[in-house]
Amino acid sequence: MKKVLFGLMTALFLVLVIGCSAEGEESSGESNSEGEQASESKDETIKFGVTPWTSTVPPTKIASLILQDMGYKVEETETNVGGVFMGLSRGDLDVFMDAWFPMHEVHMEKFGDKLERTAVSYPKAETGWVVPAYMEDVNSISDLKGMEDEFGNEMFGIEEGASATKESNELIKAYDLDMKQVNSSEGGMMAQAIRLMEQEKPVVFFGWRPHTMFNKHDLKILSNDQGFFESSSVEVVTNSNLSERAPEAYEFLSNWNISIDEVEKMIVEIEENGKDPEKVAREWIENNQDKVAEMKGE
Rank of each mutant, 00 (worst) to 15 (best):
N215V: 01
S240T: 11
G187D: 03
N224V: 00
E262Y: 03
H107K: 06
N215F: 02
T60P: 13
D276T: 10
D218S: 14
V130T: 09
V57Q: 12
S243C: 06
H217Y: 12
M155H: 01
P58R: 14
T165N: 14
V120W: 04
P277T: 03
A164W: 01
M189R: 08
V292Q: 03
F13N: 11
R117Q: 15
K2R: 00
E248F: 11
E251H: 12
L8F: 14
E264A: 01
N224M: 05
F205S: 07
L171Q: 01
G7R: 00
N224R: 04
M147P: 01
A22C: 08
S33E: 13
L65M: 13
N255L: 10
S231E: 12
W53V: 05
A38N: 07
V4L: 11
S223N: 09
A38C: 01
K42G: 06
L67V: 12
M108L: 15
K2P: 01
V84R: 06
S21N: 11
E278M: 13
E34M: 14
L12A: 15
G161V: 03
F151G: 04
S121V: 04
I267E: 14
E150F: 02
V84F: 08
Y134G: 06
D92E: 13
F151I: 00
D178V: 02
G161F: 09
E283M: 12
M179S: 09
V182F: 08
M97V: 09
T77R: 10
E148C: 02
S142Y: 00
R282I: 08
Q226A: 02
F206L: 15
E25T: 04
D225F: 14
E148R: 04
C20R: 03
P102A: 07
Y175Q: 02
A11F: 10
V292F: 05
F156C: 00
F228L: 05
P202R: 06
P277A: 08
E244V: 02
T118W: 05
H217N: 08
